[in-house]
């Protein structure tokens, strides 16, 4: 993927994600349920691996880290992605650097190693299994 395409995609998605989190935050503050974007959850009624990320991010913002872990531990990664990446890209564009692109290529190359990808996917699967067990009241 070219640098220009990646920056455009990541900047658009990062800013859209921030807007979405702000909207969900306001909704949850009013004790209302935010609009559910998860297609998998809507179709099957089951939680997907990253369901609960928004609740988790809102808990992190409130400083309630234990609740954030209970909602979804991936919220900690989610908040880093959404809060850091758009500003990292903007800084790169302002100073004419390509540090984010180099970081992306490095991560991509790392994830192409089978054991790294298998480890990452195993952790996500494990979290999902725990989530499903909680959903079915097995834990």
């Amino acid at each position: 993927m070219t640098r220009k395409n990646l920056y455009f995609l990541a900047l658009f998605l990062g800013l859209a994600g921030q807007l979405w989190i702000a909207y969900s935050y306001i909704k949850l503050e009013k004790q209302e349920e935010a609009f559910n974007t998860c297609i998998f959850n809507r179709l099957t009624g089951l939680p997907c691996p990253s369901c609960g990320t928004i609740h988790s991010i809102v808990s992190i913002v409130h400083g309630n880290f234990r609740q954030a872990l209970a909602d979804n531990p991936l919220g900690f990664i989610g908040i880093l992605i959404v809060l850091i990446i758009p500003y990292w890209i903007l800084a790169d564009l302002a100073f004419g650097k390509e540090s984010f692109y180099k970081f992306f290529l490095l991560t991509d190359r790392l994830l192409k190693r089978q054991w790294v990808l298998a480890s990452v996917l195993s952790v996500i699967s494990l979290l999902w299994i725990v989530k499903l067990l909680i959903f079915f009241h097995c834990l």
Binding site: A16, T37, I39, P49, S50, L74, G78
Partner: peptide, 9 residues
């Protein structure tokens, strides 16, 4: 995968 399909977007 981590971001729920980029929150659907």
């Amino acid at each position: 995968l981590l971001t729920c399909g980029g929150l659907g977007i």
